[in-house]
Amino acid sequence: MSADNENHPRGHRFSVEDARARAQQAYRKSEFIFSRAYGLLREPNKEWQQIRAEETTVPNILLGYVAPLAAIPPVAGLIGALVFEPIRVGPIDSALVSVVVTWIVTVALVFLLGLLINALADQFDADRDDLSAHKIAAYSLTPAFLSGLFSLWPPLWWLSLFALAAMVYVMYRGLPILMKTPPERALSYAASVTIAAMVAGIVLFSLASCVG
């Protein structure tokens, strides 16, 4: 038997094992994301305490947590449009470019939101902490990211409004724990950040639509 024939089954076995390992890793990550979202809504204080204790970096948060979640709204939106409103989609290549651009802009928006949270800390008697600010930005947006699944059926888009309220609530509960914000200032802090994020999002996504 030639060396090529001997190596082929082994290479095939490794590729199958690698695919299985990747699938298991993706399952564990999705399980962690939904567990975190559930914890932030059900027991926010406990979940934020756990988040505060986690040792990580801003790039790890953006690439390991935000990036996968940020893909949900544009991908689900494209799928929903293709199924229910194919005429509105236009050329598929342009639609895919729009998805990628929206994804990149969303990750950038979360990064900018973290910078904003840290920059506003002094105005709300909170402590400046860059890592904690980016944790607040990333994990508070979890409900908004997951609400992108409603785009799979366009008539359900309005349910995303509840995700916005959930985002403000989650941020409000997290600011005193991670940024040492006085409890009486946390709600106004969260509201200010949310309004600023919405304005920045409108501007950035408008620019992204021009590129897409």
Rank of each mutant, 00 (worst) to 15 (best):
S2F: 02
A3T: 15
A3Q: 12
P9Q: 08
R10V: 08
H12A: 09
R13S: 12
R13T: 13
V16D: 00
E17Q: 13
D18G: 13
D18W: 09
A19P: 02
R22Y: 09
A23I: 12
A23D: 09
A23L: 14
Q25C: 04
A26Y: 01
Y27E: 12
R28K: 14
K29F: 14
K29A: 15
S30K: 00
S30L: 13
E31L: 14
I33L: 13
R36P: 00
L41F: 10
R42M: 07
N45L: 14
I51M: 05
I51P: 02
R52L: 14
E54N: 03
E54Q: 07
L62V: 08
L63M: 05
G64M: 04
Y65V: 14
P68C: 08
L69M: 14
A70T: 03
P73Q: 06
V75L: 14
A76N: 03
G77E: 03
G80E: 00
G80I: 02
A81R: 13
F84K: 02
G90S: 01
G90L: 00
P91W: 04
P91V: 07
D93G: 09
S94H: 10
S94I: 06
V97S: 13
V97W: 11
V105Y: 02
A108Q: 11
V110N: 03
V110D: 04
F111A: 15
G114R: 09
G114L: 07
L115F: 11
N118W: 03
F124T: 10
F124N: 06
D125S: 15
R128D: 14
A133V: 08
H134V: 06
K135W: 03
K135C: 06
K135R: 13
K135N: 04
K135P: 04
A137E: 11
A138W: 04
T142C: 08
T142E: 08
P143S: 11
A144N: 11
G148D: 12
S151F: 14
L152Q: 08
L152Y: 07
W158S: 10
L159M: 12
F162P: 00
L164G: 10
A165K: 04
A165G: 15
M167Y: 11
V168M: 01
Y169C: 01
M179T: 07
T181R: 03
P183C: 06
P183E: 13
P183M: 07
E184Q: 06
A186M: 02
S188Q: 09
Y189V: 01
A191T: 11
S192V: 08
V193E: 01
A196T: 07
M198N: 05
V199S: 03
V199K: 03
G201W: 01
I202D: 05
V203A: 13
V203R: 10
L207V: 14
L207I: 14
L207W: 10
A208T: 12
C210D: 07
V211I: 15
V211M: 05
V211C: 07
